[in-house]
Amino acid sequence: MNCRKVRRCLFSYFKNELSEEEKAEIKLHLEGCPDCAKEALEVERVTSLVRNSLETLTPSPDFNQKLLSQVQKLSSEKVREVRRASFSPLRIKWALAGSFMAIILVSVLWFTHKRTPISPEPISEESRGTESLQLVNKEGREDSMYQEILNRLMNESQFATKTFVLDNFRSVGTRGIDGMEKLEDLHKRFIIETAGYGAERRRMENHYVLPVVSTQQASEKVNY
């Protein structure tokens, strides 16, 4: 083995990635070649440094607890599909059936319309169980494409409950077909509260979305 080849293999040598034969060859070479031996020493030190001297972070003490509470929510909640036609007659009938819910919707719509900007109160414990969110813009008009994207986000992403405040979507500009990206862009412009952990409040603009409360939580207060 020549020096060049040996040096290329030095890391693998110390990391036990070589065959017995190769190891023996290298060892032999190192015994006879002081330059390569010096190089080998450096490599050995680097590998042992990496192994032994890296600072190890540990998660915060309440990490498990926070996680498990999220998990419990996941296993007890039944995730329902939000129909696309959110304002279809069927849906309205359903909403009206829980009349309390209807009242909330209407008053919240009015509330949004009248007051901008508003700094939202933190979501209370009770309303954390919102199963779905409905996107409306400032005029209170539903936007179904983004509704679908939002639903996907809700089901897949890290925010168990979100409060998005959305103004006119169009002001963000079109970013192509991948609405997921676009909505994630919108993140940065919204007030986001991550339920439970690492509350992250990035307040950019005042935009609101209506939380749609399920019949289970119809009696609970909606804060946003």
Partner: peptide, 18 residues
């Protein structure tokens, strides 16, 4: 970033569970 790291860690496990 330490904070983000923990958030992502949380999300990883949530995804595993989901």
């Amino acid at each position: 970033n330490k904070e983000e790291a923990e958030d992502i860690l949380q999300e990883t496990f949530l995804r595993v569970y989901r």
